[in-house]
């Protein structure tokens, strides 16, 4: 099983050192080799399990309720400006 570790790391937004790349390339190769065994199972007549319960579409009433957590939530942020989370500039002029 070949896969491009750099591409996957970019999708996952994780930077890797060259050592990590090598180690993960071989670890993930071994794991993907192990899971190959699933390909031998005939699932042509089988539907997927995404969830083990019989519940579907659990809705709550669409009702406005008081919530006063924003200050506490913002306090936990690494960087903030007033009532906003602050991040590096995302749009170049």
């Amino acid at each position: 099983m070949s896969f491009e570790i750099e591409k996957v790391a970019e999708l996952a937004r994780i930077r890797l050192t060259p050592d990590e790349k090598n180690k993960l390339q071989s670890d993930l190769g071994a794991i993907l080799g192990y899971v190959e065994k699933l390909k031998s199972v005939d699932t042509s007549q089988v539907s997927e399990t995404s969830h083990v319960m019989d519940l579907t579409n659990v809705f709550r009433e669409d009702k406005v309720l008081p919530s006063d957590v924003s200050a506490a939530v913002l306090r936990a942020a690494p960087d903030r400006d007033g009532k906003f989370f602050r991040v590096p500039k995302t749009v170049e002029r």
């Binding site: 899971v35 390909k39 199972v41 699932t43 089988v46 539907s47 997927e48 399990t49 995404s50």
Partner: peptide, 9 residues
């Protein structure tokens, strides 16, 4: 998807 199907089995 194949993993989820085998999960059903």
């Amino acid at each position: 998807r194949q993993g989820q199907k085998v999960r059903t089995l």
